[in-house]
Nucleic acid binder design. Structure first.
Lengths: 341, 341
DNA sequence: TCAGCGTATGAAATCGATTGCATAGTCGCC
DNA sequence: GGCGACTATGCAATCGATTTCATACGCTGA
């Protein structure tokens, strides 16, 4: 009923040559005489031939695909990164597979399994929560050199890491607030155990100490990068008798939730309390008030990860370790102002 | 250096049977005696064997993957949908490929090419801008029954469509504003030629006429679902001498931009002007003011599309056409109020 | 005892490409 | 004229699975 796709055999027959010659024309044209090459190319045109990927991959012992592990596809933060990754693989003859590690948790053997059964050649993980065991499995089956971490990473492992300069971002945020005159600076963290939580909190604490700013344990509020945790933080802050005059949030979404909660509680932002975010997602410039935040270049992060992985797939080079951190930038908008008192 | 993955041959040797038997144990265990089955399973355990997908796909003449065409991965609207799709394919032995049709535009032959060269078995398009020619190519190579549209669609084509009830959403929005007492209702549309633009505008116009509300052409402002177009719309509205008292936006992002622009221009929302969005993305509940909007269940949309495609891949049934539209819901929050006058 | 049937298994073809090796032809140089 | 080198091409093995067909075995019933 429908025409079956042409195979290399069909092309060979049409051009009056062997399949070997057809294959060579397509992958190594220099080996073939001009006359033959033209005849083959004509036959390819006529038959509408396209190389069957399953056959090609089988023969070449590769999968032709890379897997992106995303903690939660539903978070807007990741979309820009995915766009960057996707773009980075254009023209590379690798397909980009994406999986959500939250709705679809990985067992220890799952990731290595994808390598073993020839589903993927490499992986980019945006999830820093992979188990050491899962990673050890991958190393064991020779996939260790084809895994790259992006944004997050796993402590104590030696995989390449592409990430923003989180500590610097935290420092910039604190310095900005300090420059405005704030002394009592709070922080809503990410989830416990998350590497970004640590990096940002440590950057923030270090800078606060360097500047000799006062510290109160209750000003450090545990969050989880979500809107809701921002809301909750607002309630906590509203209930304090000694409130911080500014809050540095570990993510823009947290800042949005926080601001909404503070306003609902009768405070004004930035007049009564300043708020700084982290990420600079698309919305941040249009929030009311527009959010002062630390910009991560999500698109470049994605692209860079794709480049690094492609490089390792091509060269099979084994050098590992952290890539230089990508710069972050303080974006000053309307959610920060000098303190009222 | 690293152990090569075990093949079916290795398993056969270890179990003292033929490869045919191993294959049967794995795919059709009933055909094999208990003793042999156990021996094979033990051998599988010992060798850590996993079926090589490239070989399997080649032999079975399938690709083992589906492609999701996303207009712009960077838009938060899509992330929830992708999560739903991704979840819908869990346990299905299809890999989910994702491509961004904006950063990586499709030629007419690209999509059909993916089918022909055995890269994909099916596709879900969130992009209603596919060319008729590209789709005709797919039909020609027998892939017509394996394409499903989600959210958007192409007019005049008979592919299955999963979408929300856009017209009903528009009606709900207008009715809500009317119930509050608004008579002068504006609209920021989506981009020209987009099917959602049409569906929502027509729903809105129909309801406005039904309720006998006044119409002014300038109250219908062309947008493109983006934050920026909301901003621009705000400028237009601020410049009008006869302003609408309420605006229905074709997307939440537009509403955010609009509100920010209106506030910057000195108007209050909802006191001076009410705003309704469309989509109910995660942020909408926490925007200030919290956005009244039409909820689309993005997760269910994604899941449903996955189900429909899986169904067609399994049964190869040819019935086409539009699925029943998924219900939408009016979510009343703080961005709408009775008109001031 | 033997035909007949069902069950369990193996041998080998097959999917569609790539590539090592062999071969045929061409050219140049002594 | 003949030999070596080089070019262009084909044959056939190979990648790792699935599946058709054939066969061997065990059992039943006449």
């Amino acid at each position: 009923m429908f025409q079956k796709p042409a195979t290399i055999q069909d092309v060979a027959r049409a051009a009056g040559v062997s399949t070997a010659t057809v294959s060579r024309v397509l992958s190594n044209p220099g080996l073939v005489s001009d006359r033959t090459r033209e005849a083959v190319l004509r036959a390819v045109q006529e038959t509408g031939y396209r190389v069957n990927q399953a056959a090609r991959n089988l023969r070449m012992q590769r999968a032709g695909a890379v897997l992106i592990l995303v903690p939660n596809l539903g978070k807007p933060f990741y979309s820009g990164i995915l766009a960057g990754i996707s773009e980075g693989f254009v023209g590379s003859d690798y397909a980009v597979l994406i999986t959500d590690t939250e709705s679809n948790p990985l067992q220890d053997a799952t990731l290595s399994g994808y390598f073993i059964d020839g589903r993927i050649d490499g992986a980019i993980s945006l999830d820093g929560g992979l188990s050491a065991e899962a990673l050890a499995e991958c190393t064991r089956c020779g996939a260790g050199g084809r895994i790259v971490f992006l944004c997050e990473w796993v402590e104590g492992q030696d995989f390449p890491v592409i990430s923003s300069d989180n500590a610097e971002g935290a420092r910039l945020a604190i310095r900005h607030l300090h420059d405005l005159g704030h002394k009592k600076i709070g922080h809503v963290t990410g989830p416990d155990g998350n590497v970004l939580t640590t990096a940002r909190r440590e950057g923030m604490v270090a800078e606060r100490e360097r500047l000799g700013l006062p510290v109160r344990p209750e000003w450090i509020i545990r969050g989880d990068f979500s809107l809701e945790s921002g809301h909750e933080a607002a309630h906590r802050i509203l209930a304090m008798h000694d409130r911080p005059s500014a809050v540095f949030c570990s993510a823009d979404m947290v800042a949005f939730g926080l601001i909404a909660g503070l306003i609902a509680g009768g405070l004004r932002v930035p007049e009564d309390i300043s708020v700084v975010g982290f990420d600079d997602i698309e919305m941040s410039g249009s929030f009311v008030p527009a959010l002062t935040t630390i910009r991560q270049d999500r698109h470049s992060l994605g692209r860079r990860a794709a480049e690094v992985l492609l490089d390792r797939l091509a060269k099979a080079n084994e050098q590992s370790g952290r890539e230089p951190a990508l710069p972050v930038e303080l974006v000053i908008r309307a959610s920060t102002a000098p303190p009222a008192y």
